[in-house]
Amino acid sequence: MKAVILAAGVGSRLGRPFPKCLSMLPTGERILGRQIRIFRQFGINEIFVVVGFKKNLIMEEFPDVYYRYNPIYYITNTSKSLCCALEFLDDDVIWCNGDVVFDEGVIREMAAHAGNAVAVDRKKCGEEEVKYRADQNGLILEISKKVAAPEGEAVGVNRIQKNDIPVFLQALARCKEQDYFEMGVEMLIKQGVDFSAVDISAYRCIEVDFEEDLKQALSMFAE
């Protein structure tokens, strides 16, 4: 199994002069450093970080992972950044956004799950959060920011099986430049490819988009 971390974006909503993934946590780790450590903790040692905005800062801070470059990061979103990494990989992959701070248990659950999966937190969501709806068997029906009557948040940690990567790449290629990768996931679901909702509500997990998110993350992971 391999890991992909999407860290190409400018992070304009947070407004820092450096990539969000380099934000420092109270533990002394940067967000990206924490992600890398946790992946390795579960034996996932081939880690590919997709970079763009101020890529040299990330690459100099973490020289011991693999890198893929999204050269048009400033006009594209996560659907295209994910393509940059998946097109080279031939294994099951767990991928996450580079601004998600999570407990070790989140990756434990995703690594243990057989099949395609979306990590979800069953909580009330705001307008900016990616939401989901599942059927009675726990299979994802919808995943986007516009889901009506959502069951909770899709937290930005996901898994794809090796055999489904080619068709997933085709779906991501059909996405518009500013689409999130969740659009590609929805396309696969409509083609009959299953993604299970893996409930990680018992663990701490937060995606840092705004200043308030960062403050909450610093509080949640203070110890």
Rank of each mutant, 00 (worst) to 15 (best):
A222Q: 12
M24G: 02
G52N: 07
A117H: 10
V65Q: 02
A119M: 07
I38K: 05
K20L: 07
S196R: 13
A111N: 12
N56E: 15
E46L: 00
A3I: 03
V193M: 09
R13L: 11
A222F: 13
A85Q: 06
Y132M: 07
D103H: 11
I44A: 05
I160K: 03
F102Q: 15
K20T: 14
I31A: 02
I5C: 03
G9R: 01
A173G: 13
N163Y: 04
E46K: 12
V193D: 11
D99K: 10
N158Y: 12
K124R: 14
L172K: 04
K215W: 12
F102T: 14
D90N: 15
Q191M: 14
P26Q: 07
G126M: 07
V49G: 06
I143Y: 05
I75V: 14
F168Y: 12
I31S: 01
I38L: 06
N137H: 15
V100T: 11
F48G: 04
S144D: 10
L218S: 15
E182P: 00
S196E: 12
E186N: 10
G98P: 09
S144G: 09
G138H: 02
P63D: 04
Q170Y: 04
P71M: 06
A197T: 12
V51I: 11
E207T: 15
C205L: 08
N97F: 08
V155Y: 05
G115D: 09
I189Q: 10
M220Q: 08
G52W: 07
D213E: 11
M59T: 15
S79N: 07
L57E: 15
A149N: 14
D92M: 02
C96A: 12
V106Q: 06
F195H: 13
R174A: 08
G28H: 01
E29L: 10
K162D: 06
L14E: 09
E212R: 15
G15E: 08
A7Y: 00
I38H: 07
G115E: 08
V4N: 01
M59G: 11
F53N: 13
G192C: 08
I200M: 06
Q161E: 13
I200V: 15
Y73D: 02
T76H: 06
V4T: 00
N158M: 09
P71G: 05
L218T: 15
I5A: 04
A171M: 03
L57A: 13
A134N: 09
D213Q: 09
F181D: 13
N77Q: 13
M59K: 15
I160A: 01
G52E: 04
L25E: 01
K2F: 00
K123I: 14
F181S: 11
P166W: 00
G192D: 10
I31T: 03
M110E: 09
G11D: 02
G184A: 01
K131I: 01
Q216Y: 12
I38P: 02
E182V: 13
L172E: 02
D179K: 02
F168R: 10
K131T: 07
N137D: 14
I200E: 06
A8E: 07
F88P: 08
Y73P: 02
F53M: 12
K54A: 11
G152E: 07
F168D: 06
N77E: 14
P19A: 00
A3G: 01
N77F: 11
P63Q: 04
E211W: 10
A8D: 06
C21K: 04
N56H: 14
P150Y: 04
L89P: 01
C96V: 09
E153M: 08
D92W: 03
V50G: 12
S79M: 03
S79V: 04
